[in-house]
Design a protein around this nucleic acid. Structure first.
Lengths: 186, 186
DNA sequence: TAGGCCATGTAACCGGTTACATGATTAG
DNA sequence: CTAATCATGTAACCGGTTACATGGCCTA
């Protein structure tokens, strides 16, 4: 999924400015597709408008640059539906935490514990966020997706909370050998 | 996590060639960090060697280019441990399936069912793969990580299998209005 | 009064992919 | 006979990020 399609997706469900699209792609319920920056969104919107997929309406604001509110056109809707029909690539999960847990035996216990705390906090925050989305959405598809997300994230959080002791026990003893020495003895 | 660190991680646990690193980063237990291509791995290994993080040993093979087997040096180990101490970014989950499920009401039921089938197959394949890794690993950290992964993926698969009817019921009736028209009526 | 939020946009950069070049061996 | 696997490497490209430019309003 590229920024172009993301813009189409967001605008399918309502008008928005580039600034709002950025926010939604980072914090909102569109956060699991591509996290686009201004440097990619503004050019994408301009291109989309030139292609006839969007229309703009400018709303002047005293002292600020005018808000450029984009609306999707029929051509834009069609392009999005087409994109939805394309075979989706496999889901991608990239985790720096996983690298820490795989290498727990190379790290001091406190470092591993810290990584677990952070991951647990991230997980809880995301679950809370999804619960808020669940309360505000009217779309059945979004509601199903949110329940799915909450289920997966909760399973992850619960397992991590229940087994963190096992993971932390793998880490090197802070009083024992300094990190690296155990394996470095080749 | 960039390709450089990935190479260091893989070579920390044993010598390998660029070709083998590629395979591990796509299929192996390193698949959840960056999926690097040859075009990024070979230059990274050359740079790493120039930086004194790796040593190479060439193993000539009749008719094929010589295998260049890389080994990590003490400097390389230190750099990897340092990378492990850096604050890891939040975990990233990117899903085209999620876009389909969120927009289920814009798609024909068969399209949604197909996406569910594919996702279910991906999930099962990955669970099977992790079970195989579990049988072969000797590292306690890898073993913990694999159990964690199996737990999360199983929760995901089970919930999807249990609620797929709900999701498919959201899709547009194939006998009814063609996709797009329901919402397009603005 | 400092910092964050609003709001747009451009240009340089960069990390990665894709395609290319080369070629023997093995499995279907 | 074809396709995949092994095995290395380069060059063009591209989609995205980062940093920059501008500036008023609101909150701590």
């Amino acid at each position: 999924m590229n920024v172009r399609t993301l813009c189409l997706a967001i605008l399918y469900f309502g008008d928005a400015t580039g600034y709002e699209i950025k926010k939604m792609s980072v914090e909102g319920r569109y956060a699991h597709f591509v996290d686009a920056s201004f440097g990619s969104i503004y050019p994408a919107l301009a291109k989309l408008e030139a292609d006839g997929c969007l229309t703009v309406r400018e709303e002047p604001q005293p002292g600020k640059p005018a808000r450029k509110i984009y609306s999707i056109t029929e051509a834009g809707r069609q392009q999005f539906i087409e994109a939805l029909h394309e075979p989706p690539g496999p889901d991608v999960f990239r985790s720096a935490f996983l690298m820490v847990s795989m290498c727990a035996d190379l790290l001091p216990r406190e470092r591993v514990a810290q990584a677990v705390d952070e991951r647990l906090a991230d997980l809880s925050a995301e679950i809370e966020h999804l619960k808020q989305v669940a309360e505000t959405t009217e779309s059945a598809g979004v509601a199903w997706s949110v329940r799915y997300g909450i289920t997966c994230l909760t399973a992850s959080r619960d397992y991590l909370a229940a087994t963190r002791e096992d993971l932390e026990a793998i880490a090197v003893d802070p009083a024992g050998e300094p990190p690296g020495d155990t394996v470095a003895a080749e």
